[in-house]
């Protein structure tokens, strides 16, 4: 080694990263693929249950889920909570409502956010509709749904 200084120090890139991919399987995978196509899928189960978002097994009974069916894209708010101070990671950068939305055709609630402008515009039982991000920006991810909006204004 010569005395040529810091240029001689060996360097290698080190990215702290999740360097492998996970398979999401036949049910979650179908749901995420559906979102990319602007469709929301649920899993059918015994007794007329339609679980949304879909799971491979019925969350209550553990029975294997049946076929997937399209639900929504509108539905009913079963419960909601208003935040005036969203954090940077959360879906909207302005005050919004968290909500469990029971989509038309579903029997369970999907957690998402409602862009309602004001808590005065929110109520349990209100109808909301999914607003998807533009097709070119979808990536098979829950946030392909940008938010829900009150149905009257959509």
């Amino acid at each position: 080694m010569g005395d040529t200084g810091a240029e001689e120090v060996l360097r290698a890139p080190h990215a702290l990263d999740y360097t492998y991919t996970r398979s999401v399987g036949p049910v979650i995978g179908a749901f995420l693929t559906g979102l990319r196509q602007g469709r929301i899928l649920g899993a059918t189960g015994a007794g007329g249950v339609v679980t949304v978002p879909p799971t491979e097994y019925d969350p209550q009974t553990g029975e294997r889920s049946g076929e997937l069916v399209e639900v929504g894209p509108a539905g009913v708010v079963s419960t909601w909570a208003w935040t005036d101070h969203p954090s940077a990671d959360q879906p909207l950068d302005r005050p919004f409502a968290w909500a469990l939305v029971t989509l038309d055709g579903a029997t369970t609630g999907l957690l998402h956010v409602v862009d309602a402008g004001s808590s005065d515009a929110m109520s349990s039982g209100m109808r909301v509709r999914a607003k998807f991000v533009p097709e070119a920006d979808r990536r098979g991810h829950l946030r392909d749904i940008e938010c829900f909006v009150p149905e009257a204004s959509s």
Binding site: S87, P91, L111
Partner: peptide
């Protein structure tokens, strides 16, 4: 997949 992406 279903909850954490929203950072609730």
């Amino acid at each position: 997949y279903y909850l954490a992406p929203l950072w609730p």
